[in-house]
């Protein structure tokens, strides 16, 4: 907008439609102006934006178009596909539970605890968010592998060996997915009004009762969103899983691994499994729609 001072009538700030040299106009007219302005998008920008959108959406469209819809039930009923599907659902769910059990206390510690070096710790626990998953897998091997710094004692003392087992899949998925939950819950804990917890204390509630009956319900939306994100991330995990747990059908071959391996032997099965993962992703997006697609909504 060019010059506000040429307006004959004072216009409240934040009224972009009142154009220079014009008296304020009727609302209907104003709206017309606004859309006219929206139509003045520079063509270069519009073109580049459309290309980018096409780049993001075309592959997905390709997947949907190329999918062997008619054979889909048969393909997904194959033992390999069925096993991968079941294993993925089970391991992602277990990983999410693990994340909830360990991640919520960690989030509480980061939000409310009085641990030294808290901000450093906060930065470190989000490292798996940006770490290449393969690197995560290698790191897990070095820590929990049969000769890893922790794994050797697990093996020697308890006879537990995580690598190349379903438990290893769960560990790998939890490692990669936990930051999603921690970041979401920590943000909610930090923004929750702690005076409600004080009110609970004056009513005789212990800290645990306060957490369960006051804090938890107040952070429930963030907790649910974090858990859904966490589960989706665990379901799609590839790099850390294949590095740490390998790819044994029935025990460690999750859907993403099955898709990758089937691409050579049975492309139709790969596409069918990929389609399932895409459907899950879309469902997650729909679940989180309010949080993500609303302007000013919580990020992550």
């Amino acid at each position: 907008m060019t010059s506000r001072d040429r307006l004959p009538v004072a216009v409240p700030a934040g009224e972009p439609a009142a154009l220079a040299g014009e008296p304020p106009v009727a609302p209907a007219r104003r709206r017309g102006r606004r859309s006219a302005r929206a139509g003045r998008t520079p063509p270069v920008v519009a073109a580049a934006g459309l290309v980018a959108a096409a780049f993001l959406l075309l592959p997905l469209a390709g997947l949907v178009i190329r999918a062997p819809w008619r054979e889909l039930p048969t393909l997904l009923a194959q033992p390999v596909a069925r096993d991968a599907l079941r294993l993925s659902l089970v391991s992602a769910t277990l990983a999410t539970l693990l994340c909830l059990l360990a991640g919520v206390p960690l989030a509480w510690l980061l939000a409310r605890g009085s641990v030294p070096g808290r901000s450093l710790l906060r930065a470190l626990v989000t490292v798996p968010l940006v770490l290449p998953p393969v690197v995560g897998g290698v790191a897990l091997l070095l820590a929990f592998g049969r000769r890893g710094i922790v794994g050797r004692y697990l093996d020697a003392w308890f006879g537990i060996s995580l690598p190349f087992t379903t438990a290893g899949v769960v560990v790998a998925e939890a490692f990669v997915a936990m930051p999603f939950l921690v970041v979401a819950v920590e943000g909610a804990l930090r923004s929750a009004d702690q005076r409600y917890e004080e009110a609970a204390a004056t009513l005789g509630a212990s800290r645990w009762v306060t957490f369960r009956r006051v804090t938890l319900p107040m952070i429930a939306p963030s907790l649910a969103a974090g858990a859904v994100l966490c589960w989706a991330r665990a379901l799609g995990e590839f790099g850390a899983t294949i590095t740490f747990a390998g790819s044994f059908p029935g025990t460690t071959q999750t859907m993403p691994l099955a898709v990758y391996l089937a691409l050579e032997s049975d492309p139709d099965a790969a596409v069918a499994l990929a389609l399932v993962l895409l459907a899950v992703a879309v469902a997650v997006l729909a679940l989180l729609r309010d949080r993500w697609l609303r302007p000013g909504g919580a990020t992550l």
């Binding site: 009004d193 005076r195 409600y196 004080e198 009110a199 609970a200 204390a201 004056t202 009513l203 005789g204 509630a205 212990s206 009956r213 006051v214 319900p217």
Partner: peptide, 15 residues
Amino acid sequence: RHRAVGMVFQDYLLF
């Protein structure tokens, strides 16, 4: 929580 004190807060803080 062990003081047996009832408190009405400024903006009530009803859960």
